[in-house]
Design a protein around this nucleic acid. Structure first.
Lengths: 235, 235
DNA sequence: AAAATAAAAATGGCATGCAATTTGATTGTC
DNA sequence: GACAATCAAATTGCATGCCATTTTTATTTT
C-alpha cells in the first residue's frame, strides 16, 4: 500500500488521482451505493476500510464519511468495532419499506390531484401513455424507467419538498429490489392496471380514490418484491 | 476564547475536557440540536466552526461531522464556503412537515389497529386516560408529555421499524414548533377530541377510521403550529 | 462616495498519526 | 480437547496540519 501512496508523489505533474472532478467522498459514496444496490456487493459482506482505501486510493476520512451516509440510508450496517457490512435485504424489510412508501406516495397522490398543474398533468399522462406502449411490447427496461419517473413525478406534483426528500431516501433503499424483480406477467398487468386507475382518478380529480389506489399499488409492489426475494433466497 | 484554550493546559491533571464518557461528536450534536430546537440559537444564525471548536474544546473533525448530521436532519443549512447556519423554521415548513407526518402517522394508526397487542392497547388507553386528567386540569406540560408518548406509541404499535425511524427523524424537526405552541383553548379541545376519536376507533378495531382521524389530527396540528409561527413572526 | 484591490478569515476536503478499545487468532495450560 | 491467557490486526474517534477556494473585511484608488 505504501507503493500506492508513493506512486502519486514522485510524478512530475500529479494530475491523476481520481481526478478532482468531484469530491472523493462523493465518488466513493456513489460507487459503493451502486455496487450495493446492484447486488454486486453481497448482503452481509464486510467492507474493510483499509482495503477500500487502497483500492480507491483515498484516505479513511472520505471513506468513513461515505460509510456513515450509507448507514443512514440503510444500505450498510455499522456495528461497533466490527466495521461496516452490507445490510441484508430481506423480504420483511421489503414489505416494511413499501409499506412506508405506500403511506408517503398515497399521500402524495392525494395531494397531487388538487395541486398538480395542468401542464404537469399532461406530461404525466404522456409518460403513462408511453409506458403503456412499452407494456404492450413487453419492454421491461423501458417500462421500469418510465414507471420510476411516474412515481417520482406524482410525488413531486404534491409540491411538498419534505415529502419528496423523504420519499427519495426510501426509494433508494427500495431500488435494491428492482434488480431482482423479474416480473411475473400476471402481476405486471395488475400493476399496470393500477397505474391506469390512478391516471383515471387524476383525470376525474378524485383525490381520495387516487390516494387509495396508489397506496394499494405500493403495497402490492412490496408483496411482489418480497415474494421474489423469498424465492431467490436459499434459506 | 483563547482563555478557554489556555485554561486546560496549565492544570496538573487534565481530567476534565468533555469527559470521554461519550464521543465528542455525539455530545456536540446533541448540544447543538437542543439549542436549535429550543430556539436558543436563532434561525439564520451562523455557526462558526472555530468559535464552537474553541467553546467545546474539540477539533474541527467531530464538529463538522455533527454539522453534517444536523444538515441531514434539516436543522442546519450548509452552503458552500458560507458555512452552517441555523435553518429557519417557517410556517410553510411546519405545514409541509406535518403533512408528511400525517401520511406516516395515519398509516401507522391504520396498521396499529390490527397489529397492536392487547396489553399495548391497554397501556395506550391508560396513557390516554391520564392525559385526559391533565387536559381537565389544564396542565399543559404534562399533557404534552403524554401527547408525545401517545403519538410515538401508536407509531411503534404499527410494528414497522422503518416507519418508526422515518417518523422519528421528522418528529425531531417538528419539535421546534412545540416550544412556541401556546395552545389556544379551542384548538386544545379539538385536538383532545381527535385523540378520543382515535381511541374509539382503536376500541372498535376500525382501522380505516383510525387512519382518517389521525391524519386529520396531524394536519390540524400542522395548521396550528403554522398559525403560531405566523403570529410569532414580525415580518 | 463608489469602485477596485489587497489582505485576512472561513470553509471544504482531504491525509496522516495516535491512543484506546475490541475482536480474533495463537499459544500455552490443565 | 476444553479453556484461559496472550498478542496481533482492525476499528473507532479524534487531533492536527495542508492547501485550494471562496467569502469577508480592510485598504486604496479613482
Amino acid at each position: 500500500m505504501t507503493d500506492i501512496l508513493q506512486s502519486r508523489a514522485p510524478p512530475p505533474q500529479p494530475k491523476n488521482r481520481l481526478s478532482r472532478r468531484e469530491p472523493a467522498a462523493k465518488q466513493i459514496l456513489e460507487m459503493l451505493r451502486e455496487r450495493i444496490v446492484k447486488g454486486d456487493l453481497a448482503p452481509g459482506a464486510r467492507i474493510v476500510e483499509r482495503t477500500v482505501c487502497a483500492e480507491m486510493n483515498v484516505s479513511r476520512t472520505p471513506l468513513r464519511e461515505a460509510l456513515k451516509l450509507l448507514a443512514i440510508d440503510g444500505l450498510v450496517q455499522i456495528s461497533q468495532h466490527k466495521g461496516a457490512t452490507v445490510m441484508p435485504f430481506t423480504p420483511e424489510e421489503a414489505l416494511q419499506l413499501f409499506e412506508v412508501l405506500s403511506g408517503l406516495e398515497g399521500l402524495a397522490a392525494e395531494l397531487a390531484v388538487s395541486r398538480i398543474a395542468n401542464a404537469t398533468l399532461a406530461d404525466l399522462r404522456a409518460k403513462h401513455d408511453q409506458m403503456r406502449t412499452h407494456f404492450d411490447r413487453g419492454e421491461k427496461d423501458a417500462y421500469f424507467e418510465l414507471n420510476s419517473a411516474i412515481h417520482t413525478a406524482i410525488v413531486e406534483a404534491a409540491g411538498n419538498p419534505i415529502l419528496a426528500s423523504t420519499h427519495h431516501a426510501l426509494l433508494l433503499r427500495a431500488k435494491r429490489g428492482r434488480y431482482m424483480a423479474i416480473v411475473d406477467p400476471h402481476r405486471w398487468r395488475e400493476a399496470f392496471d393500477e397505474h391506469e386507475a390512478v391516471m383515471d382518478a387524476f383525470a376525474k380529480k378524485d383525490a381520495k380514490r387516487a390516494g387509495e389506489v396508489w397506496r394499494t399499488h405500493l403495497i402490492h409492489t412490496g408483496e411482489t418484491v418480497a415474494d421474489v426475494l423469498r424465492a431467490a433466497m436459499p434459506d
